[in-house]
Design a binder for these strands. Structure first.
Lengths: 118, 118
DNA sequence: GCCCAGTACCTGCCAATGTCAAGTAGTGGT
DNA sequence: ACCACTACTTGACATTGGCAGGTACTGGGC
């Protein structure tokens, strides 16, 4: 069971995850994808990450610099701006509130399901 | 700062919430919207809920029946099918895994932010 | 010398789904 | 008559993730 993630659940969280990873340390797109996969987001692909990074840059949450690579094309390193740090804090808070609200609903008791002993 | 929910965070969770609410008891769209708002999803509007309910019906997770209302047009009551109960269980499990994975990343230590005492 | 694999980035088209706004209708009060 | 509340529906729109493909640089095998 690869515990495949519902793609929709990633929405809105991906940028938050990227902010956290880049807050841990400056990184480049290709590496960020690998770090996400190691973290358990096994099906996150480049086609989702690069546009998301571009959006973060467009919104002033990260800055970039190019660094030549010893094993391929130049790497574009992303680093948080102060606005990025703030967005990370705000996003984390929103995420915490949101999950708490959802969990509160999901924790409510249910009547017995119709006997479909799964 | 109405602490408004990032709209994107609702994606993929709304249908799960609807399944839970309808598992608690049969309900109709207008009432479901109110129940969601009471639960803390203050900015969930009819325009999001009705299409979501329609999708659930299309996917065979709920069935509907019309009941005349004493105070307006007929109400369309939604009730979970066995497939709906199963989707609720599966969705809850996916949600739990997903939040755990996200939280594991967000819990990782960060270096100090550049001194921008906000 | 050539091709291929790995590294690294970008982009376009598509699908899913929430938001906003508006419309249709039934009921009852003034 | 008009208006407010109940109740459902729909359409245009924006965001964002998935997928597929394309560009380009490095180094190794043949």
């Amino acid at each position: 069971m690869t515990a495949s993630h519902d793609p929709q659940l990633l929405k809105g969280v991906l940028s938050l995850l990227l902010l956290h990873l880049l807050a841990e340390r400056e990184s480049y797109g290709y590496e960020v994808v690998q770090r996400l996969q190691e973290a358990g987001f096994t099906d996150v692909l480049e086609g989702s990450v690069y546009p998301a990074l571009t959006r973060l840059e467009r919104d002033g949450r990260v800055t970039t610099r190019l660094v030549p690579s010893p094993s391929g094309p130049a790497r574009k390193y992303y680093r948080l701006t102060p606005a990025g740090w703030q967005a990370l804090r705000a996003g984390s808070a929103t995420w915490t509130r949101h999950t708490a609200t959802v969990n509160a609903v999901l924790a409510r008791p249910l009547p017995a399901a119709p006997d479909e002993e799964n």
